[in-house]
Amino acid sequence: MKQSFFDIIDNIPLTDNVYKMTLKGDISDITCPGQFVNIKLDGFFLRRPISVNDAEDGVLTIIYKVVGSGTEAMSKLKDGQLDILTGLGNGYDTSKSGDKVLLLGGGVGVPPLYMLAKKLISQGKSVSVVLGFNTKDEIFYEQEFKDIGADVYVTTVDGSYGIKGFVTDAMKDIEYTYFYTCGPEPMLKAIYKASATSGQFSFEERMGCGFGACMGCSCKTVTGYKRICKDGPVLEKEEILWEN
């Protein structure tokens, strides 16, 4: 973990309420896709944990949805500096993936899969990506995944674009050796049931510190209690215990 200041380069809307922020700074502690950063915002007590969309050549990219007053304030930033903790969380382990890898993202769970797809493709693996949204207007990053060479499927719940239904409806017809996913918990549960292979799931929880000190985001797993922020956010399929 590293604490440092980043300069805001850009902060643009991708949809009505999803924004992409690019920042320049020290990304040396971001070692793995699936990690997150924790951002201090003026006027807010707790930091905002946001997944890393990409980190390359000294530029950090994050994609976030406006869900409350903190992310609302963040969406209005145009320039200046942000105090950011980087290198948080375990991230996805790409060593277990096999050759045909399936990535499944739901809504604002899509962003961390981009850096993951880049890494898997650079390792010579074939990558299929299913991006799930509620409706056409919410879709983002379809082209970006295509541009890096992934085979992209888009699902919408209302059928306004791509395959009608959930990511699990697209998953049925794709051949894969392993999968990685990030998205809302109902989606993760559905994937857990529908998946034919092992895989890794990235979880979300309200956090206090984001670096393992406060026990605010603990969960129970097959292998004992884990902190989503420090021992996660990525858990392997075999260790997940669904609480309800």
Binding site: F45, L46, R206
Partner: peptide, 20 residues
């Protein structure tokens, strides 16, 4: 002890609530 169910954290003006 595992502690309480999550969410365990809430933000407040100039502070936070925890129920770890």
């Amino acid at each position: 002890r595992f502690g309480n169910p999550t969410p365990r954290i809430a933000e407040c003006t100039a502070g936070m609530i925890n129920a770890v």
